[in-house]
Design a protein around this nucleic acid. Structure first.
Lengths: 340, 340
DNA sequence: GTGAAAGCGCTAACAG
DNA sequence: CTGTTAGCGCTTTCAC
């Protein structure tokens, strides 16, 4: 059978209470006893049973991450950040993948089961109304990542500002008729980026033309290359055609690019293109975009969660990071780039 | 405080044993009692405390997945498959990201802590020698995904066969001098695909030229676009130049493509290119590749793990799936494709 | 400094 | 059919 503190106690001639004290680095133990216990424990290859510990301590060393399945690169980076942010705290990561908004609720539900997780990180999808109460009542600490909601801690990236910056950039390089290829209105980042688009359009005194705006539909909330292609194809049928396009994600931007080329137009000469995310592929495809600090928000989110777990009464804090404009050859002429 | 079975027992005028029986769907309970208990439980919003359950049942409802961080798309698909394969079993997924082979050992270690996980899924990296013994001794069931090792259950894709098929295809479309752009020799899939390459070269009676083989170095075990670019650039300096290239991953293939274009050569006219994985981007980039059933192996791996958890004495089973050749415009002339 | 004993919330014999 | 009673492995008072 497995070795428990009873085995250690017996072999070291002490009580299990003492073993527990030693193992938990508590003060009131004689140096010699401590040493002996430690030695026996190492000898026996003792490993604490975390369920038993958690039960006795009335706490959990698990952290749940609830995340939509789309955007694998984004998620992987965030997850890396989360793991690093949690490192050393003794917490392990429970992952709950949500395919759809409805599924997100189900996954959140799992994550919130009594005693399960010390904390929950909700990524890229603000909790639905029905959960707000539940989340509040829960013993688990909650931190939102890449989304925000009143009353919750969050680490977000400024999607409105990002959308605005992207369009600002297009205007700066000379665009006047700027199209928007956006993902499903179901997703908050997508909606926010549109808000930024609208804000910039207005700010620069450009005319808003609904023919230049397309909402992608389809799987993965429209965050796909083909959705971007379809949307852009439709937009290009408009007269006069746009001279710039902002896509709410990089994969959509790639699709838009293909549509533009298919239509026999050139990038950036006829139409300038900017995406959002900065997935690795984009660097080589030479596509301008808004870079998001994914790893960073994951790491900060985890740190924030640990703080919250430690002290549930910490004031609510919403950090918002600014995305960074990455200029490549789809918005400015740059002969060194790969894609023309 | 939280509601426990004691609360239910009190309110329903039964003992906790009866409550437990009802909650666990055990037979010997009067229909009426059952109904009453269920009602009270629902009323109180009872949720079982999984740590307590696990402790009492002497089992775990957690499954660990140990995975290298590179290849985010691959992992995401596998993870989706795992989650679906586990659905309904009541198991949750613990994720352990490993940055390096050394880190993989540390993560495996975490996953194997006593009583922690009912099972462990090890993805894309066969367990190091030092762990074989440990793994065997562990109470946890173990299934390898996308890798194999004597004595362990595994769900793998035939990387040797895949490499061979890729090269076969290049030969079929007329290539005679075929280059290999491979990732680090640290990774098993990479090594296996090379074996397939060598096998095909020999089978077709082509000359093996070491100048046509480059091992990518750098971060992420060489599974990067820039590593592919660098490797291909070097290979192109060889005279006579190759007329085909097999890259052990799609991102490397994209890099190779860029190197070929930079060198002023055409694809597929001068050099034909085939990658490995079939990441979504490739479909639109029109790159030929070997498609791996990622979701599927994840799902099957999970199913296999559940079976093993249920009966640890099941005979060891190693399933090997064949990757699928996807022909696009980097190996055959196809005017409809996007990238020329 | 150390030990005895009472839980943590639940399951599982064992009686009745 | 139902209740009593031991645990699961560990932490944590409270005495000594």
């Amino acid at each position: 059978m497995q070795v428990t503190i009873y085995d250690i106690a017996r072999k070291a001639n002490v009580s299990i209470a003492t073993v527990s004290r030693v193992l938990n680095d508590q003060p009131r133990v004689a140096a010699k006893t401590r040493e002996r216990v430690l030695e026996v424990a190492a000898d026996l290859g003792y490993q604490p049973h975390s369920f038993a510990q958690n039960l006795a301590r009335r706490q959990s060393n698990l952290v749940s991450v609830v995340v939509p399945t789309m955007a694998s690169h984004f998620f992987m980076e965030v997850l890396r950040g989360v793991q690093d942010g949690l490192a050393g705290s003794g917490h392990d990561i429970l992952v709950h993948l949500a395919r759809t908004p409805a599924d997100a609720a189900a996954q959140l539900d799992r994550a919130l089961r009594r005693g399960r997780s010390a904390g929950v990180l909700v990524v890229s999808a603000p909790p639905p109304d029905a959960f707000v109460e539940r989340l509040r009542r829960s013993r688990a600490a909650v931190v939102l990542i890449d989304c925000q909601r009143n009353g919750f801690d969050s680490i977000a990236v400024d999607n409105v500002g990002g959308g605005e910056m992207a369009v600002d950039h297009l205007v700066e390089v000379g665009c006047r008729r700027i199209a928007l290829v956006m993902a499903s209105e179901n997703t908050a980042p997508s909606r926010d980026r549109r808000t930024g688009y609208l804000r910039a359009i207005e700010k620069h005194g450009l005319a808003y033309d609904e023919n230049l705006v397309r909402v992608c539909v389809g799987p993965e909330d429209g965050f796909t290359e083909s959705a971007g292609y379809d949307a852009m194809s439709e937009i290009l049928a408009t007269t006069p055609r746009p001279d710039g396009v902002f896509a709410t994600s990089d994969v959509q931007a790639i699709g838009a690019l293909r549509a533009i080329e298919t239509a026999g137009l050139g990038v950036p000469d006829d139409v300038r293109v900017i995406g959002y995310d900065d997935i690795p592929m984009l660097q080589y495809a030479g596509v301008s975009t808004m870079r998001q600090p994914m790893y960073r928000i994951g790491r900060l989110g985890a740190a924030r969660l640990l703080a919250k777990i430690d002290d549930r009464n910490l004031p609510i804090d919403g950090s918002v990071y600014a995305p960074e404009l990455v200029v490549r050859s789809t918005t400015v002429i740059d002969e060194g780039a790969w894609v023309a």
